[in-house]
Write a protein that binds this DNA or RNA. Sequence first.
RNA 1: GGCCCCAUGGUCAAGUGGUUAAGACAUCGCCCUUUCACGGCGGUAACAGGAGUUCGAAUCUCCUUGGGGUCACCA
Length: 404
Amino acid sequence: VGGSYGPYIQSERKDIYNYYAHKLVETGAAYYCFCSKERLAKLQESGAAKYDKYCLHNVSLEEAKARIATGEPFVVRQNIPESGVSTYTDLVFGEISVDCKDLDDNILLKSDGMPTYNFANVIDDHLMNITHVIRGVEYLSSTNKYNLIYDAFGWQRPQYIHLQPIMKDSAHKLSKRTGDASFEDFIKKGYLSQAIVNYIALLGWSPKDNREKLSMQDLVEAFSIEGLSKSPSIFDENKMRWLNSLYMKELPKEEFAKLSKPYYDALGLAGKYDYELLDKLLQSRLEILSEIPEKLKFLDEFDNFDLSLFENKKLKIDQSTAKEVLPKLLKRLEEIPSFENAVLFENLKQFAQEINIKSAALFWIMRIALTGAEVTPGGATEMAELFGKERSLERIKTAYNRLG
RNA sequence: GGCCCCAUGGUCAAGUGGUUAAGACAUCGCCCUUUCACGGCGGUAACAGGAGUUCGAAUCUCCUUGGGGUCACCA
């Protein structure tokens, strides 16, 4: 809309294509063809690999024009030379050559008067002053044909850059149609758009230096055609997760809060937990946003946790140690007014000394009693701060009672 | 099948005749540590195969193998 080379709707450009198609016929680089679908089908059945130029040799231009004048349907075919080689230089693949005898006289203008892509891409790109054509490798070997058209018109050929696809595995490309995740799907999965862009940019291209993390601005500045790869690359979500975690960590607090809130709300945490505290614990521990529910599973799944979690071989503690320590800990906690992490931590560190136990062991027991989870997004005192005094004491009591 | 293209670790990738063949993700180990994560240090792991050319090939040539693309009145 609003560009300088419109119209941009193919059907609105019909006259343009027709004008150039007929012009191409005048130069001999194309010709009118009246062959029926039946004849074409027979030709193919007979084993012919390409059209036999029947109408070029058997229908004179005058006759063709007369038949067209009567309203007989026709197509315009490209007249590929019977011999010779067509060559061009792709900016990433280098020289690409094809024998003309291997090329078919493709249809340029269909019987409904509309162009095929074979024709439209050349006409449009030239008329719209396109200097660089960047597209998928599936066009790599079709390009020779298109160049013949540029040449016939005496037009300057554009520069070509063909790109390999992103693959799901070595044999299949990544494709929404076969169920692979789209950009939007990754956003829904909890990826940051800049991480996706960054990762995709690294597929099939690499900067001259060793950078892996590049912002859009960095990419614009670092991009060069020489960095483009000739071979397809397989999509590796693992690496994208890693990049995402990098961007996640450097997100301003407020930004992260906006992103995490919907997840907290969905878990029904509103009013029950301090979102700011949750953010503080989670932001550095997440690779993608959608990990939030599993990281917070311990908030609800507590009552039936496996008591053997109290065992820790390295710290040389087990359930009986827990049974012994927990009552003392409970008593101590009741005396502590503030459950603010730093205060609590210092206090309990000293408490560990008093009761003659390694602080690491004390914290392990306390964290398990508090959360019932082997892995939590924070240490014992951080979890206590998150739960607050009342709930902390309650949970520890529950765990203690279960120890019998 | 014809034609075109591609080929370095599990993955992304540097490398353009002489390198101990980078780096990153993943993985493994150690350190740090109130668990985990982060971070730090280190390990395992690659030139598809075969002939040439050359004093010397991951780098050049050819063949083989493997993979992809293309052979529409689709784009």
